[in-house]
Design a protein around this nucleic acid. Structure first.
Lengths: 340, 340
DNA sequence: GCCTAAAATCGTAGCGCTACGAATAGACAC
DNA sequence: GTGTCTATTCGTAGCGCTACGATTTTAGGC
């Protein structure tokens, strides 16, 4: 009477299962963790009791007792972006099938937020941690240093990193695009970017692009879109750009959505692509095959990043990841279509 | 010597903080939970000790001891879709600022997977649960019934629901689009859908569309894309559709990405939109403003769903949500542009 | 039937924290 | 100084589970 109606959603405990199955709680625990170490007869009785009572183990109690957890924390700048969300989806699939649960955090491209999220996730005593990129606050670094959780920094490559690294060089992306456009003899270019101030990786692509173009004697006009890509703004900005710099013969974009915005403006103004203006994007989003003309772009290894991040993490957790395999450059390739 | 080097990433405990600050562990705990109930002097000493040791509370231990958790589970069909990911992002922001941590699961439009994820999440003893839609397996329902966790079913509206409901009617979306096209005197139509077999909501939109068109004496050809929208396939399928049914004068799409694929094919074939073919999408994705012509579409309340889901959940957790406010139809509006 | 080794089961002692009542300190009036 | 009330602080008893050594059961050989 006093104990039965407990506060809130309190659930059936292991002890109750044990009582119903006529075994000790330890046996139930053993059955749950290593089923083949309990005799078939008891196993059956225990399973029946579990089913009958609708028993669900309490993850927190288990985690506390064993002082490990099946949690892996993942921080991305935004999940509202097919790049990261596809990586996440792949990562989730691989890690879940190995029994892990993802704890996803949105840093919103904000270092202070990342710091807060790192603390919040570490308080779960996670088995592993996945971060996006190399940029962390000093405080984050010191928190991380006090902690021997395996860490993967993904979606970037080229700096030492904290532990493991899975990504590619964004600078190389910019270079690749630049080289491709330069080959066609074009020299007057523009780079249109979203979120330039906050997204290091977009900036890296720009730098790779600009450095390569300028080294070949060309020029690059940079245009920044405020915040996330907004198609109308992209159109206006493209229009203004071409008005101020009619000499421009190629536009590289920080991603495919921006390129689509630019392309639509070209269609509206009847500027021939690639005749009048060459156009390149980044991301190889699905629609890039079917725009008119199809978009030349860069294919980043979105899903591969998830897959290899999971692989390295699992190997590291099983302590069988040689030091030499801790850093992985997945590279990147130019998908040449008709817009350049 | 024996205790100092502990296995793995074991961290500083509350007791160690207490010792350093010269207070009892309970006082540290109290300071962390209700800081203004400890005297300023001790508070300062405790904070200093926390900072010095880099103490992070152990969420699992806290959760176990207090038998509540700050976890809220969220299941979506896929995070790789701006609809759900924007809802998630908003939900996350609102719930995090109230101190909750999201546990996100990907059902991949699979009921069995949803069932598994529900169990996995309930084992965290979550404070709340957010599901997408009304479709759950019998087993899921029975697990959920044994459990008085507050539940929100989101992104749909029109059925009784388990607890709280925040969404809109997809049937109404289809109807709205149909009515708008019918008004222009068009009667021969097609509906092109992705993921038709698995996505109930796409099917609902189709049914709303078809029912309305047929009630007005029109016809609807249904075309399904295999799996997720693939732009090239969309183009081929559109081409075949128009070859088989040259009488078609309007195409409604299950979402804007599909509509973009159809539009690109129209551009390629030089079929005038909306002159020859009217075109409508769903989602009001960003690029729909700038295609040529801009796309008529439906604006679903993506972010509002997140916001209101958070609001209802928090109110329910504070047990101050009147029964009458447990169901919320956020409605939907047609964004009339130039493609229809 | 008896002995031994292996297999199966059990009991106990925590994991790190919170809840809550008991104990102590501090503030104030007389 | 003493008593009383309130504001702080503390000690204890778990939360539900796992780890691990102790105990019991079982199987096999003689």
């Amino acid at each position: 009477m006093t104990k039965r109606r407990r506060r809130g959603s309190q659930r059936v405990t292991m002890g109750e299962v044990a009582r119903l199955a006529n075994v000790s709680p330890s046996t139930v625990s053993l059955y749950l963790r290593r089923p083949d170490e309990v005799s078939p007869g008891r196993a059956e009785k225990i399973q029946a009791a579990i089913d009958r009572l609708g028993y669900l183990p309490n993850t927190m109690a288990g985690g506390l007792a064993s002082s490990r957890s099946n949690v892996i924390g993942v921080l991305v700048p935004t999940i509202t972006n097919s790049f990261f969300s596809e990586t996440l989806e792949t990562l989730e699939r691989h890690l879940r099938s190995a029994g892990y649960q993802l704890l996803i955090g949105n840093t919103e491209f904000d270092d202070a937020r990342e710091e807060e999220l790192i603390r919040s996730i570490l308080s779960w005593n996670p088995a592993g941690l996945v971060l996006t990129g190399f940029l962390h606050t000093r405080k984050s670094l010191s928190v991380l240093a006090n902690n021997d959780t395996p860490i993967v920094e993904m979606w970037d490559y080229g700096q030492p990193g904290l532990d493991m690294v899975v990504g590619f060089s964004h600078h190389a992306c910019g270079r690749l695009v630049a080289e491709h456009i330069l080959q066609q003899g074009r020299r007057r270019m523009a780079f249109v970017s979203t979120n330039f101030q906050r997204d290091v990786r977009a900036r890296d692509r720009y730098h790779g692009f600009r450095d390569t173009v300028e080294a070949a004697g060309g020029t690059v006009e940079l245009r920044e879109l405020s915040g996330r890509s907004h198609a109308e703004e992209t159109g206006r900005l493209t229009h203004a750009l071409m008005q101020d710099h009619p000499e421009i013969e190629a536009i590289a974009c920080s991603n495919d959505m921006v390129a689509l915005g630019v392309l639509c403006e070209c269609q509206r103004q009847a500027w021939d692509v690639p005749g009048r203006i060459a156009l390149a994007g980044f991301g190889n989003l699905d629609f890039t095959t079917s725009t008119v003309p199809p978009l030349t772009t860069i294919e980043p290894p979105r899903r591969e990043i998830g897959q290899h991040t999971a692989r390295l993490l699992l190997a590291s957790l099983a302590s069988k990841l040689p030091e030499a395999e801790k850093r992985l450059d997945l590279g990147v390739r130019l998908v040449e279509r008709e817009s350049v």
